[in-house]
């Protein structure tokens, strides 16, 4: 009764948007679609929310076929598009009322579901939506998407352009919604948010690279990974990229994530090589791979 896609294809003219997308989201699961811009995340959302017809393949949402039962789906899903798309010239309350009305319900009827979220923006209920801050707009949009008590919630990049504190709050809200039995499909370009999902699908160029629990995706990472640091980071990256034994090198915060081609790898050897290349202040320490490393590794193939 969650979401199920099998072999979904969609092209815009000759441009392939998504190809052979197959995955299942279990009921009550918080599932993340992780991928860079242009990977095809929004296309998948638009297909599942019946805004777009797939060229091939089958999909069901809450057990309903996206083509045959599109009317029923529209009654039982909530969709929050990536772009803020409420009426900017209506107030917070009017927006909520409007969506409640077109879903044939009232705010009072489902207030318990949105209470937590709506209470945070209630002090501004007479303010026009266009005059809200980014974080508040997002809370209002989520309230509007929830007002009809959907079984499945689609959130397309809900945290893009939102400050870190609001992002954290938002994920906490999602966790609470999940506890109420709502299936949630969320997309994000932020790898750190992926760890907060129950399961994730890594997607790039319209194709799925891997589907698993976040930790399992990381555990599959085949190599030992090292944090490397030097005074001159730019030169460090250049040097590493030219190094004959380098398997991969990516800048990662204040470090560079480095993996080696060899089975047996000694850090002293690398240290020596870097020093002989004229780099100072070198530190090399083993670290754990995370989802970003896993994504980069998968995207390489």
């Amino acid at each position: 009764m969650g979401i199920s896609l099998s072999n979904i294809d969609k092209s815009y003219k000759k441009q392939i948007a998504v190809r052979n997308i197959t995955f299942d989201v279990n009921p009550g699961e918080l599932f993340g679609l992780i991928g860079p811009d242009g990977a095809g995340k929004t296309t998948i959302f638009r297909i599942l929310t019946t805004l777009l017809l797939p060229d091939n393949g089958k999909a069901t949402v809450a057990g309903l076929d996206i083509i045959k039962d599109y009317k029923a789906i529209r009654n039982s899903v909530g969709y929050m598009p990536g772009r803020f798309s409420l009426y900017q010239d209506l107030t917070v309350e009017e927006n909520l009322n409007f969506f409640a009305t077109i879903f044939g319900t009232t705010i009072a009827e489902n207030y318990d579901l949105i209470k937590d979220i709506y209470e945070q923006i209630a002090p501004f209920k007479d303010r026009r939506a266009g005059k809200l801050s980014g974080g508040m707009k997002q809370k209002l949009a989520l309230s509007c998407a929830l007002i009809h008590k959907p079984k499945v919630l689609f959130l397309d990049e809900p945290t893009t352009g939102v400050d870190p504190v609001s992002r954290k709050e938002f994920w906490e809200m999602l966790k609470r919604l999940q506890k109420r039995g709502i299936t949630i499909l969320v997309s994000t370009p932020y790898m750190d948010e992926a760890a907060l999902c129950d399961r994730i699908a890594l997607i790039q160029d319209g194709e799925i690279l891997a589907i698993d629990m976040p930790q399992a995706v990381v555990n599959k990472f085949p190599k030992d990974i090292y944090n490397v640091k030097a005074d001159n980071m730019y030169k460090l990256i250049q040097t590493l990229q030219r190094y004959e034994h380098t398997y991969s090198v990516f800048p990662f915060g204040e470090f560079v994530h480095y993996t080696d081609k060899r089975v047996i790898f000694k850090t002293a050897e690398l240290q020596q090589h870097l020093e002989s290349s004229g780099l100072n202040g070198i530190t090399i320490a083993p670290t754990h791979a995370d989802i970003e490393d896993a994504f980069m590794e998968l995207a390489k193939k």
Binding site: L51, N75, F84, I102, C144
Partner: peptide, 11 residues
């Protein structure tokens, strides 16, 4: 302004 997409998802 993008509201049409939101409307289209409603019943």
């Amino acid at each position: 302004i993008g509201t049409l997409e939101q409307i289209n998802v409603t019943p």
